[in-house]
Design a protein around this nucleic acid. Sequence first.
DNA 1: CGCTAGGTTGAATACGCTCAAAGATCGTGG
DNA 2: CCACGATCTTTGAGCGTATTCAACCTAGCG
Lengths: 255, 255
Amino acid sequence: MNADTANGALGRKLGSVITLSNSEIDCIEAMLKRERQVAAGRELVCDGEPYDQTYVIKEGWAIRFKTLSDGRRQILNFVLPGDFVGLFAPLFDVSDHSVAALTDLVVHPLDPGSTVEMFADCPRLAAAIAWSAGRDEAILSEQVVRVGRRSAYERTGHLFVELLHRLRLVGEAKQRSFELPLTQEILADTLGLSIVHVNRTLRRLRENGLLCIKGERVVIGDLEQLTSVAEFSPQYLTAHPLPRRTESLLATAAS
Amino acid sequence: MNADTANGALGRKLGSVITLSNSEIDCIEAMLKRERQVAAGRELVCDGEPYDQTYVIKEGWAIRFKTLSDGRRQILNFVLPGDFVGLFAPLFDVSDHSVAALTDLVVHPLDPGSTVEMFADCPRLAAAIAWSAGRDEAILSEQVVRVGRRSAYERTGHLFVELLHRLRLVGEAKQRSFELPLTQEILADTLGLSIVHVNRTLRRLRENGLLCIKGERVVIGDLEQLTSVAEFSPQYLTAHPLPRRTESLLATAAS
DNA sequence: CGCTAGGTTGAATACGCTCAAAGATCGTGG
DNA sequence: CCACGATCTTTGAGCGTATTCAACCTAGCG
């Protein structure tokens, strides 16, 4: 058990940005001490309602979404193992969106007090978590482009390549395939399309040998070509070590 | 000169979340010491290129955007006075999007070292800045919904109500009107529409008495009705004081 | 005065939506 | 074990919103 695989998905993710020291690994472990089950379909956070709890997902998929009064729904992003839910909760009194479990979940509820302590005591860890928040915003930005300026075909392909990359980072995908616990309705509400059109688009992708969904599993037939037709560039997702100038700033701060 | 109007737009914004102490006002002032002019059209940040500078906008408008290889462009968000640009820059080595000045700008370049210090020394200010980052993410989320699930008519109305609220918070809008230094092409790339359709949609809004653009000025004819047809709820934008439980956590951390 | 950038309008097209109905899959209870 | 219902997937047909292409208008500026 090394720094990469300790602490599950979150440790794995943060470990790809900073080299985790033993004390930092302990700190993550302490943070993720508590654990709770959440049944599929349950809402972790409700739009417009008070909330103050932050979670880290250990297992399962969730969605962040908003619903309009006539029932139209837009999914903002998928929440995967190692992701935070409600990281900013302590700063707002009500949520501006909902979060619902797509599958049964195992989540770590965080203790607000010890999180503040952690930010003070482990500045490098704090930076890594801030990096994760920045990456979440990058994912959301890409979602804006996907929905605003890409065709249904590009859009759908792009989402699947993104999911492949994200799941790989936390060890939940093979080279070209992964479990996909989603209905086409969920895909439609993510992509800003109708269910029917998602279905037709998936068929086109399948007919072109780019990607194939069998039950709950996606297999990407030709990743290179899919990446190309979707004009996917993984830059916004890939984790690099923190810039050296920032590491040295943090080292100064810690002393 | 009181806490609300000191320090310009940023102080005004942060002051609506925490009551600024004198030392915190000083801290903001110190942070915004430097100043730089940027000409309209100039790019502050370029997609895919290294960047490490954080700015706070003092005057003028900018856009955050991404461009696809065939020229399609999607604007992610407008950057207004009091907003941060590249707040996460120290944590990434290249940017995942571009930022360009729409008008001539006056910006405050921040000094990375003193920003880290500020985070350590003024936890309440740090929390207020984190709140601002969370609000930016909320704005981006609303952009996803706008582009993904609203009709062109709703979408356009929604954007203008959002801008009105955002500009009011930093003292740049009257009750029902504000300066709009945007072409219809910029609006189109923001809303994920074609220029032609933006033009027709604006005409419809004008014909219905909801909003009227004269030159560089927008006048909202019927804010109530516009808010209603766009299904706009200002919750995600409005600043409330930090929850009491968080204030007490921060107080403990500071001592 | 002519050039350029932006705004406005019309006509034809296309992409994606709605409505509708028929398969497939799965859990559950008779 | 099979029948049933519920949920999800798939396909067809017609429609509508938004796009593209094209032309013309307007204002600002050298």
